[in-house]
Structures are given as structure tokens and as C-alpha cells.
Design a protein around this nucleic acid. Structure first.
Lengths: 320, 320
DNA sequence: ATGAAAGCGCTAACAT
DNA sequence: ATGTTAGCGCTTTCAT
């Protein structure tokens, strides 16, 4: 069996409670005693048993994160932010992938809630009601989803999209078409708001490469000189379609993405897109969770997004 | 406070031990009793307190996974496999990102070991000695790394690379150049073995887009008609370099990748590469961990890789 | 087949 | 400032 608090107490010639205090309430023990205890702890390599601590404090020292799709490059970077900030506080992070299924999502949060102090829920597909219900079950922080009364971290999609439109207009484009994402997605709604009615809307497509490929075919028929994609994956699919049909980007058509995933810099031409502060969002989510755990109120935080101009946008040609 | 085993016992008119047995040793209680208990459990929504259980059994019901870089698309898919299989057994998964730092890696495993039943370590950069030491600390399964006496799941890189060479040779290529990965990486060594001396070796490059870009410049000077990259990211970088210098792929140069990450299908031309059964590897890793936990022996498992031919390879032209 | 009771390792009153 | 002690919720002997 591993070394316990008793072993430390014995060797440091103090009681177990002194050891406990030296470790978790340093102010309550004499400095000399504390140092002696700490030395023994280091010497023995003592690590408090989390289960035992958890049993009595009611806290687990863990937190959970649920994402819709781990394979979407957008989410690992949020995970990383969460883990980074949580790690600083000695908190461990459980993860789960709901595979874009709302029922699974709710189930995962429920299951997790028993063994974590709180959960971060990304881009949830659940109804407001269900989310409220889950928030009553366990401290909950939403990322890229807004439900009144539930803490959330938003990345300012509307502003990002507005920057896209402004950029295209400054280049001289007059006819833009929006290659939309899932109609049910909250972030799709927000991005459309950012369009301010200045783009032709083109239904909703799967937010992936295949969806973008299909979208481009339709978009081409509109005669627009600029394609504004819901996200980078759709933009990438569009790029592939255009390349195959010998439509030159950005000479003939400008294309913009959204999210700034890794591959946006690697394709050709590299994608003009909107950078999302995903890693920061993960960190802020952990902070909001901490607030909740300290009995603080639910908060909403909005992080700024920034347009990144690369090679996929340019002035429109006179003749297409 | 949540509902405890006592609440269930009281309502089901049995002792707590009977409830405990009904739940974890069904064979030891009369069927009728068991059913009654189960009904009450369902009615009350009772969930056993994991901390309490853990305190006495010494098992946490958790497992950990450490990856070198969550942002490398290769790893999330392993994570997904791990979580999928673990979830089936009611096991939760902690994750950590070592950011390619060996010291952090070891530290993370050590920290985790106290609160998990075992850990999965991916593409470790640690020395054999350190890995053995960690394996003594906690049940450990390696992915894409081989250390005698320590369980591991390998994806057969050597065979994958041999398939690449065979493919290129069948197309008629006679001069291949290998754009190598990190010299220290075990998988780089394995991939080079698969080359069977039939490619010119070109030093080691960072296993990312930038590294590939730089590698392509050098590779071009060799006069080879086929570039064999250590991984997809390097291949992608090479593709970008070649496109910028108006070298047509695959007309003038064939390029192959390795890993079959998501982007390999999205670039143009789409990449001929070697598919790695990453999700399966994650699942198998969990199985090996389970074996270890049951007191079984360390095992090595090798999963097959398969060449995926796409658009980046073709017959060499007579004149380059 | 079931119940009673003893802890698992720790923290938090409660003493001193 | 430190020690004593009673549990946290559960599993597991040991009885019956």
C-alpha cells in the first residue's frame, strides 16, 4: 500500500491533523512544524489519497469536458486550454466525445456529474431546457452557446463575420454568398447576424469538407464573386471543388473560412479566415467554473475574434 | 446530499451489504431480492459514490492518457478510441498533453498514477529506463513505442512504408528520397526500416508543415521523382513548396505521406498515404490495460497499416 | 442468502 | 498551535 498520512505523521512526530493542516491550511501551523512535515512528505513521496479526501470534502478535484467531435480540429485546442488552466490548480480533466448526438451529450454530463466538481460543455446541441436542467445538477459552463442563467464563454462570431464582410467590401466585392452551417447550430445563427443581410444566403450544409464541396457547386451558380463559408472545413471543401473546376482562387472567386484551424494555413491558397481564441476560451471556462464552485454567480464572457487575411481573398476581377 | 446506499437499503427493506452485493456481485443474492433492490435504485436514481468505493477497493475506475500534442490530428483519434472502449466498461478517462516535453510527460504519468488504475502513453519521447520505471509505478500501455516488458500497441509502420515503396516502384519510380522525421522518434526508425534501403535519406525535419516545406527544397535538388515523407504534415509542407515553385504533383513529382490524417483527403492533390488504425489502437490499448489490471502479462500487439492511394502519386514522366 | 460491523485515508469539528 | 476523534459512503470479512 502507498504511504499514508499516518506514516508522515509518525515520522514527523506530529499528529495526522497537523500533517493535514500543514498541507491544506498552511496558516494554521507553526512554520517550523510545517517545514518538518513538508520535508517528510517530500522524503516519503507522500501523495494524499484523493478518494479519501473527496469522500469527506465532497469535492473531487476533477472536472469534465464534453465536446461534440474530437476529430474536429476546433475542439482539441479548447481541450488544451482547459487542461492547461485546470492543471495549474491541480485539477484533473475528464473528457468525453458525444459524437454530435444530443442524447449522448446529456447522458455524458449526467454520468460525469457524479465524479467531477463541474463540467464544460462545448457547442452544445441540447435545448435550453435540458441545459438548464443539467446546470442544476452540476456547475456548468458553456462554450459557444448562450443560455440565460448558465455561465458561458462566447467567441464573438458576429463581429468576426462582420469583419469578413467589411474586408470583402473594402476589396470591392459586391455580391457575396453565405455557405451556411447547420440550421440548428447557435453559432450559425450568430454568424448570420454578423452578415448584416449583406450576403446572399445559401441554405445549410454539413459543416465539413463534403458539405463545402456540395455548397460550392450551388454557390457558383449565384454569380457571386465571394464565398463566405460557415467554417474552415466548408471553405476547404469549396476550395477543392473550385480547383477541380478550374476556377481560380482568389483571382476569380474569393473564399473565406471561419475558425482558423491548423489546416487553414496549409492549403493553397491559404485561407482568409476568422481566428477563434479557442485555447483562451478553454482557460476562461475553467475560471468561470472556479467562480461557480466558490459560490459565485453565473457569468457570460465574450472573447474577441480577429480576421486573418491570407491568400484566398483578393479584389474581384472585372470579368468572371 | 445525494442518495446513498443506506437510503436504498432502507427503502428496499434490506441491509446495506445486500444492496452492495446486488449491485456488484449479483450471483450472491436471491433473484427476487436483487430485483427489489434494483427497482429502488432506479426509482431513487442512486449512483454509488465512486470515491467511497475507490477508498476501499483501491481501484479508481479511471484511466489516463498522455499524448505529446493534442493539436496533432493524429492523437485526438486515439483519444476517441480509448474513450469509446473505456466508456463501455464504465471507466472514465483523464487526458493530458505533454507538449512534446519528455520531462513533463514523466511528471504527468507520475501525477496521474495516483488517481487512475492505469495509463496509456502515446508516442513517448522518454528513455526506455524511464518508461520501465513508470511501468513499475502504474499499469502502463504504450502506443507506437516498444519497450521490452511493457505492454504496447504498435501500428506497423515498417510494413506501411514497404507498401509505399512497392507502390512507387510499381509505378516505375527508381529514385525516391525520404523526408525524415525526428531522429529520436522510434517511429522514424521503424519507417526507415520499411524503406529497406531503397530510398535516399534526407536528414531529419520537424514533423510539421514548416519542416516539410524546408525538406522539399532540399529534396528537389536530389533529382528524385518521388518524395516519401515521414508523415502527412511533412508531405503537406512539401506539397505547398512544390506548388509555389510550379512543380506539378504528381505529374513531375510524386509525394507520399504517412498517418492519413483528415487533411490528407482535403489537400490538392489528395495525398497518397498510409492509413493508421488510430482509433483501434486506442481501443486495443484499453484492452491491454484491462489485462494488466487482471494480473495478466504485458503484451505487444501490432496493428496492420494500409496504403491509401490518392492523387499525389503517378507514373514518373520521362523528362523532368 | 443475508446482516452486523470493521475499516479504507482523510478532514473537520472539538478539545486542550 | 496541536492532538483526539468521529465520521464521509462504501465493500468485505465474519457471523448467522
Amino acid at each position: 500500500m502507498a504511504v499514508t498520512i499516518r506514516d508522515v505523521a509518525r515520522q514527523a512526530q506530529v499528529s495526522v491533523s497537523t500533517v493535514s493542516r500543514a498541507l491544506s491550511a498552511p496558516g494554521m501551523v507553526k512554520e517550523a512544524t510545517r517545514q518538518r512535515v513538508l520535508d517528510v512528505v517530500a522524503g516519503l513521496g507522500y501523495q494524499p489519497n484523493r478518494a479519501a479526501r473527496s469522500l469527506i470534502t465532497g469535492r473531487t478535484g476533477n472536472l469534465g469536458i464534453v465536446v461534440p467531435d474530437l476529430l474536429n480540429p476546433f475542439f482539441p485546442s479548447i481541450l488544451r486550454g482547459v487542461q492547461t488552466r485546470a492543471g495549474e490548480a491541480g485539477t484533473s480533466v475528464f473528457f468525453c466525445d458525444s459524437r454530435e448526438d444530443p442524447a449522448t451529450e446529456a447522458e455524458l454530463v449526467r454520468t460525469m456529474s457524479a465524479q467531477v466538481d463541474g463540467v464544460v460543455l462545448c457547442a452544445s446541441l441540447l435545448s435550453d431546457d435540458t441545459i438548464e436542467e443539467l446546470a442544476a445538477l452540476t456547475p456548468l459552463v458553456l462554450i459557444n452557446r448562450m443560455v440565460p442563467g448558465v455561465s458561458s464563454v462566447l467567441m464573438d462570431s458576429a463581429s468576426g463575420m462582420a469583419q469578413v464582410v467589411a474586408h470583402l467590401e473594402s476589396l470591392g466585392h459586391e455580391h457575396h454568398v453565405y455557405l451556411g452551417g447547420p440550421a440548428a447550430a447557435w453559432s450559425n445563427t450568430r454568424r448570420m447576424q454578423g452578415l448584416q443581410g449583406r450576403a446572399e444566403l445559401l441554405g445549410s450544409f454539413d459543416p465539413n469538407f463534403t458539405g463545402g464541396y456540395a455548397a460550392a457547386e450551388q454557390a457558383l451558380k449565384t454569380g457571386a464573386t465571394a464565398f463566405i463559408a460557415y467554417n474552415d472545413l466548408i471553405a476547404l471543401g469549396a476550395l477543392a471543388y473550385l480547383a477541380e473546376h478550374n476556377v481560380r482562387v482568389p483571382d476569380q472567386i474569393s473564399v473565406t473560412g471561419f475558425d482558423d484551424i491548423l489546416y487553414a494555413t496549409m492549403c493553397s491558397p491559404p485561407l482568409t479566415t476568422v481566428h477563434m481564441p479557442t485555447e483562451d476560451a478553454g482557460k476562461v471556462a475553467v475560471d468561470l467554473l472556479a467562480t461557480l464552485l466558490d459560490g459565485g454567480p453565473a457569468e457570460h464572457r465574450e472573447l474577441p475574434t480577429t480576421l486573418v487575411v491570407r491568400g484566398s481573398t483578393a479584389k474581384p476581377r472585372m470579368s468572371v
